[in-house]
């Protein structure tokens, strides 16, 4: 049994210790927001926070996170209670196919956690590990800089979520 914290809750798994964390989170614990893209830490679609740092979980054996705190996109915010990055992402129409966006947002959140006022070059550097095949880079960058600017401004960012007109287009299975 390997035990760790997943979005604030302690969980245990008997998955084989070499199983990458990504598959444990997706299939054992059913959180599908983190995506499989390359299996080689090259695209960033699987990015989660491990003890606060953005990590590629498609190559991270679950044995390596025993006792650690994992945060996924689902732990960052929900459609009902959005993280400010998610609100701006939706408001500015960042996603196209959307498959990479959980990873993009997790990398962005880690960046802003370390550096609340990044320069464009800081954003380029921090986000260079996340591929967006649809090429949403200009919007991703703008959204991050928007959140950074609003966080440093005195007004409350929660308004963004309240004003978002976007609706969940998810499929009912």
């Amino acid at each position: 049994m390997i035990s760790f914290t997943l979005n604030g809750k302690t969980v245990q798994t008997d998955d084989s210790p070499d199983t990458p964390l990504l598959w444990v989170v997706r299939d054992t614990f059913g959180l599908k927001g983190s995506k499989f893209g390359c299996g080689a830490a090259l695209c960033g679609a699987c990015t989660m926070h491990i003890d606060g740092s953005a990590m590629r979980t498609c190559v991270m054996p679950v044995s390596a996170v025993a006792g650690k705190a994992i945060t996924t996109i689902e732990g960052l915010g929900t459609p009902e209670k959005l993280h400010k990055l998610q609100a701006v992402w939706a408001e500015q129409g960042v996603p196209q196919c959307g498959y990479c966006q959980s990873g993009q947002i997790m990398s962005a959140a880690a960046l802003l956690g370390n550096n609340p006022s990044p320069t464009e070059a800081d954003v380029d550097q921090a986000m260079a590990g996340n591929i967006c095949r649809c090429g949403c880079y200009p919007r991703i960058k703008k959204a991050i800089l928007t959140v950074a600017a609003e966080s440093s401004a005195p007004s409350a960012p929660e308004e963004l979520a309240a004003n978002s007109t976007a609706k969940i287009g998810e499929v009912v299975l």
Binding site: G33, E74, L82, V94, Q101, A166, E170
Partner: peptide, 10 residues
């Protein structure tokens, strides 16, 4: 956009 920003799009 919202579903795709929250990991809830299927």
């Amino acid at each position: 956009a919202l579903a795709k920003s929250t990991g809830t799009a299927v």
